[in-house]
């Protein structure tokens, strides 16, 4: 059963690749429209040095933005949980930041933050993309603490700090982990979008490689960059899912089937 769950998607992907290769050869599709998988593989092997450097750069920005988004979102949510006034004052601003399309404010950010240091602008944009889900879910999670437990802590005269660390933070953990899975992907998307908008040769992440190969009609290389990008996304998602399982497996309802 477990083997089937891993093998069946692999099998489907292999069959799709085979079909793709066959059709491209059969219909003689030009390589600048749709290269065959074999051509993409060759491009990957030829350019792997520059592609890996670019992938590392995109990954570095995504991870930095993600870590800052989690730290910022958690801190602000904790602050909100301690003061309703602060929450009412600041939450709308966070919503505005969230609903404004990142592409629309990107030029401004590039001018303000990125003139002397383009990476800083990329980092900021990736951070904006990843920040809100953490803030929103964490705020919800801190508030979702069991009222019976809160009563119990009040009964024994617990301090605010004890309530926060012993009840609210553990209650919020599943919410945070689920937000992290969303934000991990968003930070990668944010980094790529930012690079597209920044569009300078000063920052050469995977998005830059995609634009560059598009301009030169090196579509196979473009696909190779795309492939690396989705591999990065998958890797981020799997790491965060593993973290979630590790932290929740012993107690959370969502992990019930994994043995007790």
């Amino acid at each position: 059963m477990k083997a089937a769950r891993i093998l069946s998607p692999i099998l489907v992907v292999l069959m799709a690749l085979g079909l793709w290769e066959a059709l491209v050869r059969l219909w003689q599709v030009p390589a600048f429209v749709l290269p065959a998988p074999s051509a993409i593989w060759r491009a990957l092997l030829e350019d792997y040095a520059s592609l890996l450097v670019s992938a590392w750069m995109t990954l570095r920005i995504s991870i930095t933005a993600f870590v800052l988004a989690v730290a910022g979102g958690v801190s602000l949510a904790v602050l909100f949980s301690q003061s309703r006034a602060v929450e009412m004052a600041l939450f709308p601003l966070a919503v505005i930041l969230q609903v404004t399309p990142i592409v629309a404010i990107a030029p401004l950010i590039v001018i303000w933050a990125g003139i002397d240091n383009p990476n800083r602008a990329l980092l900021l944009m990736a951070w904006i993309a990843a920040f809100f889900p953490v803030l929103s879910n964490m705020t919800l999670g801190l508030r979702a603490a069991d009222h019976g437990l809160l009563d119990l802590y009040r009964l024994y005269g617990a301090s605010r700090w004890q309530v926060l660390t012993q009840i609210r933070l553990p209650s919020a953990l599943p919410y945070l982990l689920s937000a992290m899975k969303i934000s991990g992907g968003l930070s990668l998307i944010g980094a790529v979008v930012a690079e597209f908008v920044a569009g300078s040769g000063a920052s050469m992440g995977l998005a830059w490689r995609i634009m560059e190969s598009g301009n030169r009609l090196q579509i196979a290389k473009m696909f190779a960059a795309l492939l690396l990008l989705s591999l990065l996304g998958i890797a981020i998602f799997f790491c965060l899912s593993a973290l979630e399982s590790l932290l929740l497996r012993r107690w959370h309802e969502s992990r019930l089937e994994q043995g007790s």
């Binding site: 019976g148 009563d151 119990l152 012993q166 553990p170 953990l173 012993r250 107690w251 959370h252």
Partner: peptide, 10 residues
């Protein structure tokens, strides 16, 4: 209380 109100993580 009516519910056991235990901490599920402990």
């Amino acid at each position: 209380f009516q519910d056991p109100t235990l901490m599920p993580w402990a």
